[in-house]
Design a protein around this nucleic acid. Structure first.
Lengths: 215, 215
DNA sequence: CACTTGTCCTGTCATGCCGTCAGCTTACCG
DNA sequence: CGGTAAGCTGACGGCATGACAGGACAAGTG
């Protein structure tokens, strides 16, 4: 699928080159975790990677280009989120477990990748199609599964006709993403991590099925 | 409340100075709407305002400082969000209307201020306490009202005991904010503005009361 | 009207990052 | 060992930053 890794000026990257490239990506990742996106400078990334700025520009057009690369790697790993919903049931006790595991997996994924996801979120909100596409790639699997679940319940008359499955699913996914990226924020509202999850799962269950879960 | 407006070097700003200052803020606001936060440069803001970079630095320590100023103004205006919930009922048809009007007002406020809210959201997610505080200022009123509503329903046995009002309210507010800032995103999921609102209102109503609305 | 005072703005400058290029070093291969 | 392509960097013009001193301006005073 992915063609050969190439430098900006068109050369094919060999073992050594790819290693350097990856090191730059790793260092950029670290920098994003420790300092504001706006303040991340090419020179700092290069220094941290023990190389020079010129080398950075050999592999990436700019900081944004490198961020897109990291984000794309993450989005590929994000396929794991699909498994949270594959073949799951939303009925009875199983439904409650599905909701819980979805929340758990989602929050965990977000926490592991929070730095880069922040930037992706910002880029998408600013209207950048490339970031937008990556955000889609991550959320689409979950979103589609949820929309399917709602549509299916709807066809069996368990959910009102005038509900729009895509709108419900999208809103729920947006909620999960937002809560995940402001997890720390809930502490100042006096809500602990452990308390947050079941309440979030409750909201998910309510949203999808329209009913309280049977626990 | 707000003390006298002062320049960075401590002088008190007069009429003319305040006008210039405000013009810089307005221009910065516009720039944030049209180009990525990361790419907003002092020199561009100054040029657009028909003044020089040096003038900018007379009133603000840096771009971030000016953004905080704008955000604070907005947060103050954001007090209007409180009215969306003041004295409203969550019972019966009135409850459905409350939910609808909350969604409507919230999405509208967010759309009017989306550029600056994106930056505030990013700053808060990055852990900057100043941005965090502003985000709180905006969301707190809505959040507290919602939490109160849940707590009240809970005390009357209409909502389960093990629900955490603050967690529910916080999650719903986060959802509203997230959906609002990615409103355009829903279009690529085939969801139109007009369809989005009632579905979002449904989720809000379900979350607060635990029941479907009576329409 | 000239003078004074305090506010307001800008020209200028040192500093530091950006992004590019030519050219040097390193690795691989016949 | 020599050729070739990959890999890296020093150095440079260009631009934004942020600080300062001094000029422009409005308003009040004698």
């Amino acid at each position: 699928m992915t063609g050969q890794v190439r430098t900006v000026d068109g050369r094919v990257a060999g073992r050594r080159g790819q290693a350097t490239r990856q090191k730059l990506l790793d260092c950029l990742s670290e920098m994003l975790s420790s300092s504001p996106y706006r303040d991340v400078k090419v020179i700092d990334v290069a220094r941290r990677a023990g190389t020079s700025p010129a080398t950075f520009y050999q592999y990436f057009p700019d900081v944004e280009g490198a961020v897109l690369e990291i984000a794309d790697q993450m989005a590929t790993e994000g396929a794991e989120l699909t498994e949270l919903l594959e073949g799951r049931s939303w009925a009875g006790k199983a439904g409650w477990q599905t909701a819980q595991e979805l929340v758990d997996g989602f929050l965990d994924f977000w926490r592991r990748n929070d730095a880069i996801l922040r930037v992706v979120d910002l880029g998408a909100a600013e209207g950048d199609k490339r970031f937008y596409k990556i955000r889609m790639k991550i959320l689409n699997s979950v979103n589609n599964s949820l929309a399917d679940a709602v549509a299916e319940l709807q066809s069996r008359g368990r959910v009102d006709k005038d509900v729009n499955p895509a709108a419900i699913a999208g809103s729920i996914v947006a909620m999960l993403a937002a809560v995940a990226s402001h997890q720390k924020g809930f502490q100042s509202w006096g809500v602990k991590q452990a308390e947050l999850k079941p309440n979030l799962a409750l909201l998910v269950h309510l949203g999808i099925t329209g009913r309280k879960p049977t626990k």
